[in-house]
C-alpha cells in the first residue's frame, strides 16, 4: 500500500465510523430500534456502541502495526492513526452519555 494511502488510513477509519454511527442513529430513531430493549439498553444503542468500538479497535490496531521511527516517512502514517483514534473516541463518546432519540 502506498505511503499516502497509509497516511490516510486513520482519518479514513474515523470518516467511515462517524458516518456509520450517524447513519445508524438516524435509521434507528426512524425505525424505532430504541424501543427494542436488550438489558441494560436497546438494540439501537448496542448497534452504535458496537460500531464505535469497532472503529476504536481498527484505529488502535493501526497505531500498533504501523512502524515507528524512521523520520516523517513513518511518522505521518502513525500520526494519521492517532488522529483517527482520537477523533473516533472523542466525537462518538456521546454514545455513552446521551439518550438515543
Amino acid at each position: 500500500m502506498s505511503w499516502l494511502m497509509k497516511s490516510l488510513l486513520g482519518p479514513g477509519v474515523w470518516g467511515v465510523c462517524f458516518s456509520a454511527v450517524y447513519g445508524l442513529h438516524g435509521l434507528g430513531c426512524a425505525r424505532g430500534w430504541s424501543d427494542l430493549t436488550i438489558a441494560p439498553s436497546s438494540v439501537h444503542h448496542f448497534a452504535m456502541l458496537g460500531t464505535w468500538l469497532a472503529g476504536i479497535g481498527a484505529c488502535a490496531l493501526l497505531v500498533i502495526v504501523l512502524p515507528r521511527g524512521g523520520g516523517m516517512q513513518n511518522q505521518l502514517p502513525r500520526a494519521g492513526a492517532w488522529i483517527g483514534l482520537g477523533a473516533v473516541v472523542f466525537t462518538l463518546f456521546p454514545i455513552l452519555v446521551a439518550s438515543s432519540c
Binding site: V21, Y22, T91, L92, P94, A98, S99
Partner: peptide, 12 residues
C-alpha cells in the same frame, strides 16, 4: 435533531 446527534457534531 436528537440530542445524541447534536452531541456528535458538537464534539467534532
Amino acid at each position: 435533531i436528537p440530542h445524541m446527534a447534536l452531541a456528535f457534531f458538537s464534539a467534532a
